[in-house]
């Protein structure tokens, strides 16, 4: 058996214990010709990593991006947009007041009103996914996201509590 050092590193690599430096050593070793037949499969693996590192987008991608960007900016006139943006807080406020007035009027008149004339503020139906399958997938993703964040929060809180416990020990 040749290359005992490399074999040891390989074992470590597959146990997921190598450092970035050691992984580099492995790639470098395998970029040379390897005589041991039993090491061949690993050579393919590490050469693959090395070749993949060389992949690049085709030339001129940045130029195309900036071109697209300038096209976007000329096609959507910037000026009215900018004015609208500074106006927006006022618009929101004005909309709120309008909403309020309508709202309070609505409350006043509600009792006399026929329930059938009440209309929903938002037509949600147009935002529904087209198939129940799609809807289920979206629901799953949404639940997954909520779940992940929820757990992140709890584990962070647990860490805090542990830390506080530690501090308590020091203080007593």
């Amino acid at each position: 058996m040749n290359n005992p050092f490399i074999r040891e590193l390989l074992d470590k690599y597959f146990r997921g214990e190598t450092t970035l430096e050691e992984e580099k050593t492995l790639r470098e070793f395998f970029s040379r010709d390897v005589a041991d037949p039993d090491l061949k499969p690993y050579q393919e693996l590490f050469s693959f990593f090395q070749i993949e590192q060389l992949q690049q987008p085709s030339e001129g991608l940045e130029e195309r991006f900036f071109e697209q960007l300038s096209k976007r900016e000329t096609s959507e006139p910037k000026r009215p947009e900018a004015i609208l943006r500074t106006l927006r807080p006022w618009l929101v406020r004005a909309a709120m007041v309008a909403f309020l007035l309508i709202g309070s009027w609505w409350i006043y008149t509600r009792n006399e009103m026929n329930p059938a004339t009440e209309t929903a503020a938002i037509d949600w139906s147009k935002y529904e996914p087209e198939t129940p399958e799609e809807a289920l997938r979206i629901t799953k993703e949404a639940l997954g996201k909520a779940s992940r964040h929820l757990n992140k929060g709890t584990s962070m809180a647990m860490e805090e509590m542990n830390l506080m416990g530690e501090m308590g020990k020091v203080l007593h």
């Binding site: 987008p57 085709s58 991608l61 195309r64 991006f65 697209q68 960007l69 976007r72």
Partner: peptide
């Protein structure tokens, strides 16, 4: 797919 990856990259940049 390289073409799709480049499209994606452009979209991400935007």
């Amino acid at each position: 797919n390289p073409a799709e990856a480049e499209d994606a990259l452009q979209e991400v940049w935007i």
